[in-house]
Design a protein around this nucleic acid. Structure first.
Lengths: 258, 258
DNA sequence: GTATGTGAATAACTTCACAGCC
DNA sequence: GGCTGTGAAGTTATTCACATAC
């Protein structure tokens, strides 16, 4: 989801819609799987199913890249893999640093899919001196003091922040000052960055909250059908002070927030 | 980010736009921070800045919830916290199971923000018998055999999948069969679920690829005419009937994909 | 016959700008 | 005077449906 695009007022000329860009990795993954099974061609319908979108959307997306299919036949798998990879910039190597080697940072470092496609972990960085030198996922953890040197020595332009929330902005500032222009933020904070720097965030708690929203609606469903397994009615406590407030007051079983 | 909404054709009546729902957790976080600093009221401008959006959007978002502000003054922090929490369904307790206690699963289990707001880790589940009983984040890991019992005993409706890609669909099927109707998927796979089940995914590699796309553009910035239709004789997969191919062929230093 | 590519139609989302209320 | 709430305008994304090409 979700990101803080900061630059580019919506590229003119060869502009690929942001929504399309966000789906290209999905297509690429599905195509790679087909490629591994040596499937030579695929129709928009099949590929769309594999990627979890509908075929019209997929065809429209591909139309922004060019005319890479063959009418009456479909798409050449290998060729498409290449085109999408190129479009995404995966035909080059992207060194990445991960800052904050706690539980999450270590998990990210160990995540295979990382290296698999264009990305290479150039270094793991942590502020804890006790961590320095300790190997994680085969790489020695480096101390934060070295951050700037690591960035510039390796030509790193993408940084991953997996620190506690409190340290994130500071780390971000240093990364940016050192030359990083794309940041993937796992810390639950809004980062502020200068123009020209892209930030994307991944936030467990936000995702869960969105799910809870929909889950809540399912429970309070007007009743008739959807075979509700009705996972036990949870009860709450507390009371709401009513008062004037006009909002569309909902059902909701009461209970106070934090 | 992105998700596979599966049900609800966009609720009529009290329908809050999906884009708005996705931002409520952001507002909530910013408000909670203000609340902790005992700030009594906040303007749309201030709150918007703290949440990383613009104020018009924020006001529009809030307008879907009701009229919770005071003209000329702003919003009452505590009151808004409560309203948003309620809207998101966080005024109730959501037991959650995490399946797949590898590096990532353990990181998730240890993630504090988890319990902090309405969510409670009911159980950690892993397929490895050797893991069974071992404590992670203070909870004993349970074996997959117990999955169904755990779900129903605890009234779990939200499941988190942190297994390898290969196991994800199978785990998903079992979760759904056992009564889970919301899934947060960290495995790099498209899950297929029946109508009525919500899936959201979190995918490191997709996020990085999106960043790489933009990063690539930054590098090739300004150049007047985007990409010279250079030869770029795509070697791969002979089959290609040369000619035709109109796509905006790019520069790119060659290199074949996987 | 079959499946792509794409204009046109529709829907969702964002931003503007200002009336309304404090 | 200041700030919210919201119609209206503008923008982006999705879906339709069919001409076009194999």
């Amino acid at each position: 989801m979700a990101t803080g695009r900061t630059h580019r007022p919506a590229t003119r000329s060869r502009g690929i819609p942001e929504a399309t860009v966000a789906r290209l990795p999905l297509y690429l993954r599905a195509l790679t799987a087909l490629s591994e099974r040596s499937v030579p061609t695929v129709s928009s319908e099949e590929l769309a199913t594999a990627a979890g979108v509908n075929s019209a959307k997929l065809r429209k997306d591909f139309s922004y890249l060019g005319s890479y299919g063959t009418r009456g036949v479909g798409y050449d798998v290998e060729y498409l893999v290449y085109q999408i990879s190129r479009e995404l910039g995966l035909t080059q190597d992207w060194p990445v640093v991960i800052v904050g080697i706690g539980n999450l940072g270590a998990a990210l470092a160990n995540y295979g899919g990382f290296a698999s496609r264009g990305f290479r972990v150039a270094a793991l960085i942590d502020a804890d001196p006790a961590m320095a030198g300790k190997p994680v996922a085969g790489l020695p953890v480096r101390h934060t003091d070295e951050l700037e040197a690591i960035i510039s020595d390796n030509g790193v332009s993408i940084g991953v922040i997996a620190t506690p929330a409190g340290a994130a902005q500071q780390v971000c500032d240093r990364l940016v000052a050192a030359g990083v222009t794309s940041i993937l933020n796992f810390a639950p904070t809004v980062l502020s960055v200068p123009e020209g720097v892209d930030v994307r965030k991944v936030d467990l708690s936000i995702e869960l909250q969105i799910l809870a929203f929909h889950e809540q609606r399912k429970a309070g469903e007007d009743s008739p059908s959807p075979a509700a397994p009705a996972a036990a009615a949870r009860s709450g406590a507390g009371v709401r002070s009513s008062a004037s407030r006009k909002g569309p007051d909902g059902d909701v079983p009461a209970v106070m927030p934090a």
